[in-house]
């Protein structure tokens, strides 16, 4: 991952298609990932648009104890040990 790059942008640069409807504007919530295990220290907290969208994310009802982030906003470059779960990530054609 490059510095300052979002998770979704890094995946797209690496040749993957990441699920999104709004195209990375923190509006649709479609790109959300579930954090597997504990979130590593130093992970930057969500800023306003991401936090607002996460607050109403339907996934939270299904996994009330899990942590969620938006892949279009999350910039994890400087952090080691982050594992996320996401369905629908595919090699771009």
């Amino acid at each position: 991952m490059h510095d300052g790059e979002t998770l979704m942008a890094a995946a797209e640069r690496s040749g993957y298609r990441w699920p999104t409807v709004c195209g990375g504007l923190a509006e649709c919530g479609t790109c959300a990932v579930r954090i597997v295990g504990a979130a590593p220290d130093g992970l930057p907290p969500p800023a306003a648009p991401e936090a607002d969208r996460l607050a109403t994310l339907p996934d939270r009802k299904l996994h009330p104890d899990a942590g969620f982030r938006l892949a279009c906003q999350l910039r994890p470059a400087a952090v080691d040990g982050l594992v996320v779960h996401k369905k629908g990530v595919r090699p771009a054609r």
């Binding site: 298609r17 699920p19 409807v21 479609t30 339907p58 009802k61 299904l62 369905k87 629908g88 990530v89 595919r90």
Partner: peptide, 25 residues
């Protein structure tokens, strides 16, 4: 069924979760 716009493969779909999403929504 998830929208094909999301790119989710049918084999990845958890049927319990899918139905819960529909009904709960």
């Amino acid at each position: 069924k998830p929208s094909p716009r999301l790119g989710i493969d049918p084999s990845e779909v958890d049927q319990t979760e899918l139905l819960a999403r529909k009904i709960q929504d």
